[in-house]
């Protein structure tokens, strides 16, 4: 299925702006509506557009399984990792003030909150983006892509080892 000229022309030019807007939503979450979750969903929607204009197989090359699959877990690990670092620094789990040290000023504590919040929002965004991209790619997988390429090669590898 080749998309219409209009879809591919507009889509190609819209994708970078969609991704930039997603990053804006992530960064602007402190002062207005938005945050990691919404930013992640918007970022993922640019990949939906990519599938529409470039086709499933070509888009999967730009967002390969070997990168997107680990990223779904990376965001969670980043979030949980910040919590554990807080414990190592002497605070409670996810107690961001621990980043500023034991007897820090109020301003330093605020800075610690600020950076920890950016960190966890980034974690949320990474997980949401990768998960939504994965969900869309797996749901919209065309029939000719449903047989596993690496599975087939794995089988032939096994036979080769036997011979």
């Amino acid at each position: 299925m080749t998309p219409s000229l209009i879809v591919s022309y507009v889509g190609r030019r819209a994708i970078p702006f969609i991704q930039l807007y997603a990053l804006y939503v992530l960064g602007h979450g402190e002062d207005g509506p938005g945050g990691g979750f919404q930013g992640g969903v918007i970022f993922a929607s640019s990949f939906v557009l990519l599938v529409l204009i470039a086709g499933w197989a070509r888009a999967r090359k730009d967002a390969p399984e070997s990168i997107v699959d680990p990223l779904t877990a990376t965001g969670c690990l980043l979030y949980a990792g910040i919590g554990f670092i807080c414990i190592l620094l002497g605070g409670a789990y996810l107690e961001y003030e621990a980043f500023a040290g034991a007897n820090a000023t109020a301003a330093a504590k605020q800075h610690a909150h600020h950076f920890a919040l950016i960190g966890i929002e980034l974690g949320v965004m990474i997980t949401v983006t990768a998960s939504m991209v994965t969900l869309y790619f797996e749901m919209s997988r065309p029939p000719e892509e449903r047989n596993a390429p690496e599975d087939g090669s794995g089988d032939s590898d096994g036979e080769g080892a036997d011979a």
């Binding site: 789990y93 996810l94 961001y96 909150h113 919040l117 966890i120 949320v124």
Partner: peptide, 27 residues
């Protein structure tokens, strides 16, 4: 906490544990 958007400080800080759970749900 600091952010002018109170929703963000509730989600990320006061209720940070819940938001982590939500992220794990998506994962």
């Amino acid at each position: 906490v600091g952010p002018t958007n109170i929703v963000t400080s509730v989600l990320g800080d006061y209720r940070g544990y819940d938001t982590m759970g939500e992220t794990v749900v998506i994962f």
